[in-house]
Nucleic acid binder design. Structure first.
Length: 259
DNA sequence: ATGGCAGCTATGAGCTGA
């Protein structure tokens, strides 16, 4: 089973890119972020025509996450537990029922800039709630993964120019420590586990020729529970998509799970 | 990453993103 996470930066602006990608790359499951659309505004028919079941958790204008699957989806939940007042659509869960059932959590972690400030506080508070959900997932002792745009540069090697990001919310010590606390519960970060080298990125800014200069960062990640890590057969970044017409500023990151 | 780009919005100049 091949699973991809992809921050598409607006489903209405990216629908042609998204459909071409589904046709060409054929993920069994796609976890999308920044759909920037309410649920009713999602071009559902184009997705279903391609054989996908679609579950969305949208919001007007910003944020918004979705899960697409060629296999049945069960037990869908929306919203990260822990703060009923949080209205930002950044979390969706569903169980994919294939040869083995896998709990899929799709996330769009807050950016947090400028730091310090209220947006940075929201990021860290959100990560505390993520830690709690991650702890509960581990306690279930089932194959499960949390994937999406983490807005975290885990290490210096995950940025072309790490010194530029030193004070940024994506790289500040508090952000990376919060990310490590989750990892250290016992999760496996799929890509880094299989690819120890530097120079692999999942985002290049639209500005200042970042793509042409390969001035990227790696901020889209798959975190696997031990039972899911046992199934890990591959992990890669679909970098080529960034060079196409009307690209997102992110590219898809993949894992393959094999029972 | 510095403004420069891109997408969104009670259509418009302002917000958000990373």
């Amino acid at each position: 089973m091949k699973i991809a996470t992809f921050n598409i930066n607006g489903v209405k602006a990216r629908i042609e890119t998204l459909c071409d990608w589904l046709d060409d790359s054929a993920p069994d499951v796609a976890i999308l972020q920044e759909i920037k659309s309410v649920d009713d505004g999602f071009p559902r028919q184009l997705i279903e025509d391609r054989g996908y079941t679609l579950e969305t958790h949208g919001q007007k204008g910003f944020n918004g996450v979705a899960i697409l699957s060629k296999l049945p989806l069960e037990d869908v939940t929306r919203g990260l537990p822990g703060d009923d007042a949080d209205e930002q659509a950044r979390w969706i869960e569903a169980t994919v029922v294939g040869d083995v059932a896998v709990r899929i959590c799709g996330l769009y972690l807050p950016n947090g800039n400028p730091a310090p400030g209220p947006k940075f506080d929201y990021k860290l508070a959100w990560m505390e709630r993520l830690l709690a959900r991650a702890t509960a997932l581990l306690a279930d002792e089932m194959p499960a993964l949390m994937a999406g745009d983490y807005n975290i540069i885990p290490q210096g090697m995950d940025a072309a120019r790490p010194q530029v990001w030193r004070d940024d919310a994506l790289f500040r010590p508090e952000s990376r420590a919060a990310y490590r606390r989750i990892l250290n519960l016992g999760f496996t970060e799929a890509f880094r586990t299989l690819e120890p080298g530097a120079g692999h990125y999942s985002f290049w800014d639209y500005q200042a020729g970042a793509w042409e200069k390969n001035n990227g960062i790696r901020i889209d990640h798959f975190l696997l529970t031990p039972q899911c890590a046992d199934l890990l057969a591959g992990a890669w970044i679909e970098k080529d998509l960034r060079a196409r017409d009307k690209p997102s500023d992110h590219v898809p990151v993949w894992v393959e799970l094999r029972p």
